[in-house]
Design a protein around this nucleic acid. Sequence first.
DNA 1: TATGAATGAGAATTCATTCAT
DNA 2: GATGAATGAATTCTCATTCAT
Lengths: 200, 200, 200, 200
Amino acid sequence: MTTNTAGTRRRDAAGTRQLLLDAARRRFAADGYTAATVRDIATDAGVNVALINRYFTSKEGLFEACLAEVGDELGRTVDDQLPLERIPHDLAVRLAGPHAARHRTQLLLLLRSSGDEKAERIRVDILRRFADRMATAAGWQPGDADADRRMLRAQMTLASAIGIALLRASTALEPLASADQDELAEPLRDMFSALLAPDR
Amino acid sequence: MTTNTAGTRRRDAAGTRQLLLDAARRRFAADGYTAATVRDIATDAGVNVALINRYFTSKEGLFEACLAEVGDELGRTVDDQLPLERIPHDLAVRLAGPHAARHRTQLLLLLRSSGDEKAERIRVDILRRFADRMATAAGWQPGDADADRRMLRAQMTLASAIGIALLRASTALEPLASADQDELAEPLRDMFSALLAPDR
Amino acid sequence: MTTNTAGTRRRDAAGTRQLLLDAARRRFAADGYTAATVRDIATDAGVNVALINRYFTSKEGLFEACLAEVGDELGRTVDDQLPLERIPHDLAVRLAGPHAARHRTQLLLLLRSSGDEKAERIRVDILRRFADRMATAAGWQPGDADADRRMLRAQMTLASAIGIALLRASTALEPLASADQDELAEPLRDMFSALLAPDR
Amino acid sequence: MTTNTAGTRRRDAAGTRQLLLDAARRRFAADGYTAATVRDIATDAGVNVALINRYFTSKEGLFEACLAEVGDELGRTVDDQLPLERIPHDLAVRLAGPHAARHRTQLLLLLRSSGDEKAERIRVDILRRFADRMATAAGWQPGDADADRRMLRAQMTLASAIGIALLRASTALEPLASADQDELAEPLRDMFSALLAPDR
DNA sequence: TATGAATGAGAATTCATTCAT
DNA sequence: GATGAATGAATTCTCATTCAT
């Protein structure tokens, strides 16, 4: 039975919703959509399973809500004006900084597919927006010559970052799995400038 | 499907086994371990479901066999002596060349986890061996100074490649999803030399 | 919905109770006991679900209360002295007259079973009393010769009437479903006199 | 575990299908669509629940199959040429004859609704066909003057018969519930001739 | 009185696996 | 070797009900 520290039932809809979102994001990111069960998520959240359907209609709905939340967070945290030089460091913080656990789920979720069309649209939108910002940080404009090739590079950069996050999270591959923020920063810097600033 | 003159399926254990392995690899790579159903796999292979358990004991066993096969293939195809300069091109071929469909499943499978410990061990072994070869191609030796930092770079390179493969396969993100071999080759070259040959 | 000047629902236990009874009767009659959900009923009544348990203890209790109310209404409206000749017309009014919607639920409810023993007893009592009144209207006395055969006829008459009500309500079977009061009256007259006045 | 008399698993798809259909018809007829559970049905049939989905896709599908089967049976057994005089007797046999249990479920099923559109269409079709045959037995032709009024009478006759079947089956209302074939035949005769042969 | 958050039992359905043929 | 019928565990979701406010 779900009890808060006082031993009484929690009665805070918004709080419960958020507990579910947090637990779901972790589970979906770590196990993938299908392998994550609503029961696991509810247990992690310390909340009754039925509340998932109450608040999010269905498992699909919960997944969409997770994606939407990640979209919002990335929209807020990834600053348009972040200069190119800061991006590798920013990503290293994301991958291995003090709040890596939460940040990493943002990236991982972008690789998790539920098969549902609506969720898929949200996911691709986020990826596209994220890549756009990288391109912008690299000083590229939509109308530039070679805009398409540059966008490809931005997307490859993003894909690489997510791939690194995924391999770090899901695989006991050393030294990658345990590399700390500083160890990651240097190669990331090399990689990013090679991809996003090839001409300099 | 292989049929004899009587029109019935040939009773060919090895052939049936291989049909299942091929179908399973595609499904596991595309859908992930949990989302791929043995029924789908058997149907794709044009074979009775029960044969999966007969030949591979369980779904787990089938997954392990797929991984093992990928390990063998990579062991054979990734040449020890492949010079560093050829690796980006080789990878571009893998990602977008004429047999990309089959090659890509090799990479994707390396990100698919079943939760089973034995499969996990196989998977990590393959990844490690793969990264080792890249490091070797970069001219690094196990005993070198900075061997650890270099191994990290090799693993990040591998992770990036897999991330690109995954995003291409699972997401309608253009232009990345449809980029052809030549379009991929150039940025891959930049990225690989930045990661594997930072000093030159 | 009854509201006071402050715009909040009037706190009127009796009124709320009645809103629930009305909504429940409609739902139980239309959908059957199991298919009718307490949430649907509460929503129809414009009332909080929990009040069903507060006022009627349980869904069972609400169903019993509906039946009891129907029993009361039929006891009041079906006049002992109603002459045989008026019964078909009375029934036609019930089935297709201006207040048919509400009247029909009375009949339909008599066919809806919850499986609960107490409700079942109420239901059978109502049916028996209803059939008794028909027999009485036909001029029969409990002690008559052939009392049993006559009671059987009265019950068959009742069953027929309910069957017609049910088929009209639940099935798009034309012309039965849309027949109006006058169209129903004539055949009902024939049927009733054949069953209840076979000797004349 | 389901075993036949020999203690071995049954391996007869058609037989198992039929066991499920029989059990389902009884349950649906007796309890209604919603109240009947697939688990009950499977247990009655002595068969694993999952086979319902295997053979009928869903509970809905099973219900449709039951209706379709009833439609076929009624199509075969209700003879076009059955003279009017035989119908009441035929119905008495159906309601209270030696195989009443099975026959009665045919009628009851025609009052059970699942809410599914397809099932509803099947149900109405059967009712219409059944009423048509009664009208034909009464010597009526589609083009007759008053065809509509006569069809109404045929449908009311059918509704009455079903109402009697339902009240007999679902309610402990004596003497109706226990009346035997002969006791039912006489009033049925009166009722049917009053409705279907009002002019003679 | 009324509300709505929370719960637990039970529903239908899916799926890997086993077994008889 | 191959087939497909049968099984049981697990999954998502619904629903009546209880509880804190």
